[in-house]
Design a protein around this nucleic acid. Structure first.
Lengths: 202, 202, 202, 202
DNA sequence: CATGAATGAGCATTCATTCAT
DNA sequence: AATGAATGAATGCTCATTCAT
């Protein structure tokens, strides 16, 4: 069905969709989704405006799929660390993967930061889900870490949920801040700073 | 509104400005600055659209002043903690004040989170300044805390700049997350989680 | 229309066309041709959008054929009454048939009413032809009716062309109005009202 | 406030609105409301597109106000005939006024015809109201006419509601048809044809 | 015969900004 | 100091139509 010598694009089907994904990520990452028009996205992807609507239905849906796409990748990367036998090493690995992910997908990360706590975001539902999943995963890792160590004598262990949120927030901000204000700062340094949070548990 | 017989018929002057400030904070807090029109702000403030431009010159300047206004209040509140004699108590106080501030000025906080790491924000300059000042202040506090304790033998102390950024990020996210997803979580709990960061220094 | 004795494995050929006809009639009847998209028609007919263009060339041609189809049926139904031996009974029969037709083909009727006097309609030519044919037929019936009766002494007989137009208009509007605003009104009642027009001729 | 010698446009206020009314009537009359863009209307009125929205809120509201405007004028004109002492002369006068109105406001009339029986028109409510008011007025006139004459012996008097609808429809169509297809036909001729309807009542 | 991905001109609407009063 | 009518560029979206398969 596609060996005809003189043929072309046969990849057609998902081709446009992928081009749009890539172009959107690029543009939205630097300027914010509100500042990027569908026209620009289409032009950057090398397709017509109508193709955006044919493939995604609306600008919001396009961004929604961008979010789904990003979170899927993030989860894939966090998986290994989450099941590591050594809780601390596992957590350290997760934070490192997260920081690398943020470096690789700045558009997704920035979009997430900007929209996650905007009470009336267009993607409130999906975002709340994302937040719960990630914080839950972090909390589980912290829980295993805490169980391992016999609770130190006098040290008051903070609430695990709040601690997971703090670690999540610190990692997110460390990742973005590194890219925007401190490109010279290594991921290891950031991991070190983020892991400081776990000190009371060790 | 004008009881004093012989005095200023205008306190009026800045009246419109204040009304606009209040209205903007309210609206932008829930919906994001891009989703709020000058028309809405004017209507909510009970003034005409022209008045917005008379007082602020442009929508961006209005928001810029909102940022200045917020950051000034935040600094005022962080001051006492920053000069506390006990470094740890001082830091704890600062985090607490920050969380209370976030609760009191959600619009400002959300705006800050959304724009701070958006590479081409309209207020990039002011935001970078804000970020430097706050992180610097946190770093100074961490520095005093570290100096006080004789560096524990084997524990590697993380980079203070990264640690300050982590603490800043964690506090910001904890504050917003509390408002949006966990209104029942107390400020003390959040302070506890944020302060976990400082464990390696103690 | 297709007496060929030995089989047709395809009635198939016109299958899509018929489905599209039916679907168009249904949709256009309630919403107006401008409010119905080719996508909707295709979906309702259970065929692809390309099939619409394969069969009709354009949306306007589809509607044009809808008009031709409708007018052909209408004429077929008006025939018997037009050749009735008793002019009055014939006219009464024609009006009755017309009202029944309007009830059966509301889409066609509404389209006709909406477009007939729109000066720059897409189907101006076909519509003018339709109008002439129908009004001519009505006029002929009125003429036979008038000839039969010896012009009443003092009664001024109105211009037959104008009278035919009035009867045409009254019937069209009575038919649509019945469907939209007075479903309980019988066709007989409407015929009675429309025939009132012929009183001066009797 | 406006005597300043060198002033200009002072009429400003309703000026734009009137210009838009006039331009809309003109354009919509010949091409139909769906075929006329807001751009065209604005250009024809000599104002910017934004002004249309400033004054009317939306294209649909503009057309809605056009309908209100037209119906108000029509009612004003029908008033005298409706209260005429001689029922027949009054009715004749009403029909004449209606035909003149149709000639003067073709856009309104065509819009009315096109939308009145479109089941899902944007202005369904207003149109139903218009229809009820006008048919009610006609019905009242027919009623007075019927009461005056002792019901002729054998003649079955048709339902007054249906008769009013028929007269309404006939007049509307006669008026439009005259403009589009028979400009040479006089209003008197049309009145004669429309009044033929009342014969059974006399 | 039929499909459906792709197109791009066209459209209604929004909104920050200006300016005469 | 304040107003609000007017502006026009920008934007998200629709839809009839084309065409390679």
């Amino acid at each position: 069905m596609s060996q005809t010598p003189t043929t072309r694009p046969r990849v057609r089907a998902t081709d446009s969709k992928h081009r749009l994904f890539t172009a959107s990520m690029e543009l939205i990452g630097t300027r914010g989704h509100q500042q990027v028009s569908v026209d620009e996205i289409a032009k950057a992807a090398g397709v017509s405006k109508g193709t955006v609507y044919y493939n995604f239905g609306s600008k919001n849906e396009l961004i929604g799929e961008l979010l789904n796409y990003g979170i899927a990748i993030l989860f894939e990367r966090l998986g290994p660390g989450a099941t590591h036998t050594d809780p601390e090493a596992g957590l350290r690995q997760m934070v490192g993967e997260a920081l690398e992910f943020i470096a690789e997908y700045p558009a997704f990360s920035q979009l997430w930061i900007s929209e996650q706590w905007q009470s009336d975001s267009q993607w409130a539902g999906a975002l709340a889900q994302m937040r719960n999943d990630v914080i839950g995963m972090v909390r589980a890792a912290l829980s295993r870490l805490a169980e391992q160590e016999p609770a130190a004598a006098g040290k008051p262990v903070p609430d695990l949920d709040a601690l997971a949120t703090a670690l999540f927030g610190a990692t997110l901000i460390l990742g973005r801040d590194r890219q925007v204000f401190h490109p010279e700062r290594s991921i290891e340094e950031c991991v070190g700073a983020a892991m400081a949070f776990t000190a009371p548990l060790r």
